[in-house]
Design a protein around this nucleic acid. Sequence first.
DNA 1: TGCAGTGTTGCTTC
DNA 2: CGAAGCAACACTGC
Length: 323
Amino acid sequence: MNLFAKEDRCVSPNLIKIKLPELPEVQTIVNDLDKKIVGKKILGVLYCDAKKLIKESSFEKFKKEIKNKKILKAERRAKNILVHLSDEKILSVHLKMTGHLLIVKNSKLKAKNLGATSSQIIIKNGKWAGNNLPKELKEPKNQFIHLVLELSGGEVLALSDMRKFAEVKLVDNGYLRILDQKLGPEPLDTGFDIKCFKNIIKSSKGKIKQALMDQSKISGIGNTYADEILFFSGVRPDRLVGSLKEVEINMIFRSIKDILKKAIKLRGTSTADFRDTEGKEGGYQKVRYVYQRKGEKCRKCGSIIKKIKQGGRGTCFCPVCQK
DNA sequence: TGCAGTGTTGCTTC
DNA sequence: CGAAGCAACACTGC
């Protein structure tokens, strides 16, 4: 059985397309990158429009430094995608909200009738302008191209991001230490055990959902999984951490591990663009119990899922199952 | 039709 | 000092 609506899967072997990336989604992307582009060389930057996109260094520097770097491996730290390159460089990508990466065959993108050479990808106003475009590239979500890297082997790696929140940096190895300093432990590492989690709870003050989403405390949990984790723990999102009983803390700890693992296994489950999955067949709804289910029936007890605003974010929970 | 909602991060404010 | 609010952005839905 397929647990996903069409839009939430990798829609073609060459297209990595997952929305609203939290830890499991970023892990999925990283796993795919590791499979598909490791060993290739970055021949150069074919296109880059956003001045904001390249933050750390100037674009000219970025362009010069990334040229001819070999891709060694891809890894994830929190919601950051880290592509390790030769000469101890790292291409760091944070997709923020609507960013996504595309791997596309170069030959599909050439605009022959526009007189382009093999290395010229034609993009106009952020849209692909080649002929014979794959169907997926014509989708609206893929028409916000800000960066295109040419890879050896006749492929390109592109970043599309409607809201321009995504960030791309070319950094050196020291960046890993900077990340470690500002990010909490990886929830799926063995080092993140119940003792570690209890310490985090002890050092937190406000509401439990905010604590779970605080990247400096725990890495990689966003709005979707925070809601889902708390549902499976039977704990209301607005509970103060100080009020949590031992058994509840244990439940939350287990749920963090279980839900994130399950989500990775399923290649990510989150979606914000609800309209994309609405009405479409697939078991996607089966893996989502509360997030964006306001007004619908709780899958456990049948009560109506409630939505509140907490910490500026939409927060869904079952008023009966969660105490 | 305009404006609130959508969510991640980091900066500002209190 | 730490929590809360908001900007960045573009599009959807009411």
